[in-house]
């Protein structure tokens, strides 16, 4: 990936991570008032996602500045790449479980989703990881996000309000972003990879609009 793409990647991931952490902050804040398990899941999920995105930004920076031909640099790159992939998968997984609990209120639905969606970890070697991403991780995130978008669609169809539309749009763009990212990994195109990041960034912009909108509630 060229320097320009790396710089763009870092900025987009920093912004997206900040928005994700902001969503988690409000989820925790309102959970103190409302006390709801779904909010706990959403708070935890967005925390993992936000930290994962910030680690991804730091990893992209390390690609630019560290000497990965040396053992220390390569180990650091491997560790940070694995960390952000695991954190992001965990984030989407927890959000997906939270949505399921909210939509169906089924006792063991979270465990069921976990059992269905998390395959056995494949053996990972650092040369399999390309600029902090890999095909397996992207595929898992796409599956999880497809599930989240489906739940979001059900919620929007029920409530039909502007804020739930922002959340649905946010997750839909993030899903589309990962689909494009997966495509870029298959055709080995840095430009398409960056387009995927841009689309995902659009998703976090929609999340930011949701936060701004929820803070400006019209008096009842």
């Amino acid at each position: 990936m060229s320097g320009a793409f790396t710089a763009g990647d870092v900025i987009l991931n920093l912004f997206s991570g900040a928005v994700a952490l902001l969503v988690s902050y409000y989820a925790y804040k309102y959970n103190r008032l409302v006390s709801n398990n779904v909010l706990r899941f959403i708070g935890l999920g967005f925390t993992a996602l936000g930290v994962g995105l910030l680690v991804e930004a730091m990893t992209a920076l390390s690609v630019a500045f560290l000497d990965h031909t040396r053992a220390t640099g390569a180990t650091l790159l491997l560790a940070s790449t694995l960390a952000y992939l695991v954190l992001q998968i965990l984030g989407y997984l927890v959000i997906a479980i939270g949505y399921t609990v909210g939509a169906f209120s089924a006792g063991n639905s979270g465990a069921t989703v976990l059992a269905l969606l998390v395959p056995n970890s494949p053996p990972v070697r650092y040369y399999f990881l390309r600029v902090g991403d890999n095909v397996v991780a992207s595929f898992i995130m796409i599956v999880l996000l497809a599930f989240v978008v489906f739940q979001g669609l059900l919620i929007y169809r029920t409530h039909r309000n502007r804020l739930s539309l922002f959340v649905l749009a946010g997750f839909s763009f993030i899903l589309l972003g990962y689909v494009v990212t997966l495509g870029s990994l298959l055709i080995l195109s840095p430009a398409v990879y960056f387009v995927g990041d841009l689309i995902r960034f659009g998703g976090f912009l929609a999340m930011l609009m949701f936060l701004v909108g929820s803070g400006k509630v019209e008096p009842t």
């Binding site: 409000y26 989820a27 309102y30 008032l33 409302v34 709801n36 779904v38 909010l39 959403i42 939270g98 949505y99 909210g102 939509a103 739940q151 059900l154 919620i155 029920t158 409530h159 309000n161 804020l163 739930s164 922002f166 959340v167 949701f210 909108g213 929820s214 803070g215 509630v217 008096p219 009842t220």
Partner: peptide
């Protein structure tokens, strides 16, 4: 009131009610 209404709007977007 304002805080609860904001919370209501936030959780409503995730299909919840206060």
């Amino acid at each position: 009131i304002k805080e609860v209404e904001r919370a209501q709007a936030f959780v409503g977007a995730f299909g919840l009610d206060i």
